[in-house]
Amino acid sequence: MAEHEAQAYKDPGTPEEQSRRTFLANATLAVGGVIGLVLTIPLVGSLIPESLISPDKVAAGKPVPLPKSGWDSVATKPGTPVKIDFSFQYADGYFPPAGDDQSVWGIKMTPEQTASFKEKRPDLYKNPAGEVKYDATEMGFVVFSPICPHLGCRFNWVAEQSKFACPCHGSQFTVIGEKVAGPAPRGLDPLPLRDATGTAQVTWIQYKSGTPDRIIVAYN
């Protein structure tokens, strides 16, 4: 911007005028600050999710039934993981609750697998997320989240090698979810399973990826 002549600024004025101008300048900045503050609190506040303010108030997960067909095919193939598709009601943001499709890996453990489960998956038992009860092992069943604990890809069951393998970064897991290769920081995440009078019910949980500890991020 070109220099321009401003007459009013040539004469600095009396000391009273100068002190008055200092006051007006400060008052203007103060008014701006007050408006900014009154706006910042609700505007920034509107973006803060409830889970940050009161994490313990986040509703715990509800067990949802797995379809019998999927469960039956698990029961008939002991020692082999079977992918079970299921759906549960989930309210996504402002949308009314609607069916949300997910899948889990279900395994009917052989007696040997059940016997060695606690020994081979000690990470499940020493974990702070101990509130997740693994009574699944007592039933002889285990259900794994399909999400790789490394960075959240969906892994596959490779029958020829009898391993779970993640296509993204090469993590590999045994049939009972022990990590055997790759960058994953922990074994596969089991989901709480319960037997509700003949119906298998699972609680959908999302765990934090990339950490050795199993930290719950969200329930269904």
Partner: peptide
């Protein structure tokens, strides 16, 4: 002549 800053700006802010 009056000054825009801070005299007029204060009135605008008010």
């Amino acid at each position: 002549q009056g000054r825009f800053w801070p005299n007029q700006m204060f009135m605008d802010a008010a």
